[in-house]
Computed example of a mutant assay.
Amino acid sequence: MKKLLAVLLTLTMVAGAAVGCGSKSEEPAKSEPAQNEDASAQAPADADTSAPAADGEEPYIAMIALGFSHQFWQAVKSGADQAAADLGVKITFEGPEQETMVDKQVDMLKTALGNNPSAVCMAAIDNEAVAGILQEAKGKGIKVVGFDAGVGEAESEAKCSTDSLAAGALAAEHAAELLGGKGKIGIVGHSQTVVDAVERVVGFKDKIAADYPDIEIVDEQYGEGDHLKSAEVAKSMMQANPDIQLIYTSNEGACVGAYNGLKEANKLKDVKLVGFDSSAAMKEAIKSGEIAGAITQDPVGMGYKTIETAVKLMNGESVESFIDTGCYWYDASNMDDPKIAPLLYD
């Protein structure tokens, strides 16, 4: 009898243990949000990343800018971060220290693609340097969105940017107004390869040529957006053309550099300066009247619309090929306006 009771007790314990294991396996598994590094380690290199993310995972979008440290890019990043939070995606945002570092930006793109993103958003320093890489990514189902300078049309499905031709034209209108419709202008640009940089100058020149026959553009030089180089460009420009009455600059670096050059040459009272973008130095000089005014973009809106567009493409929605993120003229008279002030970054 004791042996029989022992056997029965043993069988009962085994059955109870089996029921316990079964109940544990039926509980839903709890998964932590997937990190970018984990996703890249688990997915094959040629994975079709256009497929919907697994339940509990956020789709990953890689965003690569022309630069990173400048406040403009930080403002773009803040808009992108907000869109990511609103739309339930995970993003990375990076860019090289200098907006001339083509090789470093290419390496950043390759690394980002190694993490198998659902979409890549990029402002390319050199379109040709990334064209083949992005075309290969598109072939794997990765969505490609250009922002700011963008990428080649063949490589992207949409571009979210300031209409740089229109922005250059807007600057020309105000420059012409400052000159009373006649005079001589010099241009200090920042790049002859970055698409939006080129268009800011082309838009300006085309508007002057079309509508202001008594205004002459007498010199055009480039300082790579570097303060020191742009200062030297402005000084040499004035030495060669002392009758220049206004200088148009195509970005913050060119503007602050030209401002410094004019100041060193004691020409600030003689030459009007029209800028592009903003910074603490530009805002202070515009308030004081030493810089006549500038064109500002909407970097926060640009970042937001870029991520929003990428998500729409990932969801199979149609989007416009070009999404204009807007531009505005600001000077001492309107820079504190509630519609303008939030767009002026330091």
Rank of each mutant, 00 (worst) to 15 (best):
C21P: 01
G22R: 03
G22T: 09
E26G: 04
P28G: 12
P28M: 11
P28S: 14
S31Q: 11
N36S: 12
D38F: 03
D38E: 13
A41N: 11
Q42W: 10
A45Y: 07
A45I: 11
D46A: 13
T49A: 05
P52E: 10
Y60Q: 05
I61Y: 04
A62Y: 00
A65V: 06
L66F: 05
S69T: 15
W73I: 11
W73Q: 11
V89E: 03
I91P: 06
F93N: 04
E94Y: 00
P96L: 05
Q98W: 05
M101D: 15
V106Y: 08
L113D: 01
G114W: 08
N115A: 09
A119Y: 01
A119I: 09
V120P: 00
C121P: 00
M122C: 02
D126I: 08
N127L: 07
E128Y: 07
G132Y: 01
E136C: 06
K138A: 14
V144E: 03
V145N: 01
G146S: 00
F147V: 10
A149T: 15
G150C: 00
V151Y: 07
E155W: 02
E155T: 15
K159M: 01
A171H: 08
E173M: 06
K182E: 11
G186V: 11
G189F: 02
V194F: 06
V194C: 13
V198L: 12
V201F: 06
F204H: 08
D214A: 12
E216G: 04
I217R: 02
I217N: 04
I217E: 01
D219F: 07
E220Q: 09
Q221Y: 04
H227T: 15
L228A: 14
S230W: 07
A231H: 03
K235V: 09
M237I: 14
Q239S: 11
A240R: 15
P242I: 10
L246W: 00
I247G: 02
S250K: 13
N251Y: 10
G253H: 10
G253E: 08
K263T: 15
A265Y: 00
A265R: 03
K269C: 00
K272G: 13
V274T: 05
S278F: 03
A280R: 05
I286V: 14
G289H: 10
G293S: 01
A294G: 05
P299A: 02
P299T: 07
V300F: 10
G301S: 08
Y304L: 02
I307N: 04
L313R: 08
E317T: 11
S318W: 00
D324I: 06
G326Y: 03
W329E: 04
M335V: 12
D336E: 15
P338A: 12
I340K: 09
P342G: 12
Y345T: 14
